[in-house]
Design a protein around this nucleic acid. Structure first.
Lengths: 226, 226
DNA sequence: GTCTATAGATTGATAGAC
DNA sequence: GTCTATCAATCTATAGAC
């Protein structure tokens, strides 16, 4: 081996960036290898195929990012237990959102990973869809378990939907941050702290709203909330 | 002209379906023309290029869909004015969400248009991004104007963000509905009325939450909401 | 491990007969 | 307006020299 580790790692960094910018399908191995300054054939030698390359890009960040989210939730639960009370839904959702969107990302390709996640959200390709699911599901399940404990009065189905709305709002924030960076032609940044703060307020209000009344007419539900 | 109208229209229907299922980039003109049962060269003859074809697909639905959303908002404002009160934020947001997600779509390609919109949300291609923007912006601005009137105490910047969170949650709902249809191998359907109802409750709670307090520590804001 | 060279397939677009 | 046939460009993947 000459610089195999270098080449292999540089390929991951370049792939993360190019996949994020161009999308999986549109990104060509030629663009990636050119960005990494390695030979085209290196992709096949080190990873076997384009598909396995993008899987490796996700796999590299997956564990770290999910652990950060789990740790955020665990800390809140621990502090609550130490104080002898139930974890508050607001601190739980704040920890989850901050761990997902607010993390400082300083590594070479690390800044591009969230861009890749957003792009993968509605990607057509099955490999990419599975990768997105692998990224989102463990943390979503952990959040759901924690919120079930924090909001015992809310039916499980309602909670599930509300957490899906939360995911959607989070993706939108990350997407807007990326679109702004693209328009300004700058490297991807973390969303503004102010936007994250507003997001937490918004989804907390939505999550902790009273369960829907079984009323027939939409207007009838108005009184209970306003 | 022999059946030029038929061919031109059938191409739009097929393109709407194939673009929605495969994504703009991955969809090939051969797949589209095969689905439409027309000759490959017909795309170039009737539309000029793949890019102009997808633009025509969006253009066909754009006006109708935006008018439906505008009309929903206008009706609410009119009813409120007739009753001599301010339009309630809940009925406004309900009208907007219903007009966007709850519309019955029975036309041949019409059912696939919302799938195309969701896919286009994070599409890499510039043409597709512009088309998505054209679809979303007029209705978003109308909603923002109406909500500004309905929530006069909320700072404009806060309202803007909260409406963006709302868009994100709406896209998530449509995306989940589509993913379920794809998994079940059925044609795209409108999201469940129950999910739409929960979505409206969620975003209404988030939109009408009190403006953020200028507190430094996140936990300090808890008291005002719980 | 890295390189050149190329196979093999697919694509968007178009020329030209009918 | 519709068709066949094909061009020219692009892509992933790989064989084989070094």
């Amino acid at each position: 081996m000459k610089h195999s580790t270098d080449t292999k790692e540089r390929l991951l960094d370049a792939a993360e960036e190019v996949f994020a910018r161009e999308g999986y399908r549109a990104a060509s191995l030629r663009a990636i290898t050119a960005r990494a300054a390695v030979n085209l054939a290196a992709v096949n030698y080190h990873y076997g195929s384009k598909r396995e390359l993008v899987e490796a890009v996700f796999a590299r960040r997956l564990q770290t990012m999910n652990q950060a989210r789990m740790r955020g939730l665990a800390q809140v639960r621990e502090q609550a237990r130490a104080a002898g009370r139930r974890p508050s839904p607001r601190t739980l959702i704040a920890a989850f959102v901050e761990a997902t969107l607010g993390q400082d990302r300083s590594g070479p390709g690390e800044r591009h990973f969230m861009a890749l996640v957003v792009r993968s959200f509605s990607d057509t390709d099955r490999t990419v869809q599975r990768a997105f699911e692998n990224y989102m599901k463990p943390a979503f399940d952990a959040l759901r378990a924690a919120m079930t404990e924090a909001l015992p009065a809310l039916p499980a189905a309602d909670l599930w939907w509300r957490l899906q709305f939360t995911i959607g709002a989070m993706i939108r924030v990350q997407h807007l941050a990326l679109a702004a960076d693209t328009a300004a032609n700058t490297a991807p940044r973390t969303p503004d702290a102010a936007a994250i703060r507003l997001l937490i307020d918004f989804v907390y209000a939505g999550l902790s709203a009273p369960p829907a009344a079984p009323s027939r007419h939409p207007a009838a539900a108005q009184g209970e909330l306003s």
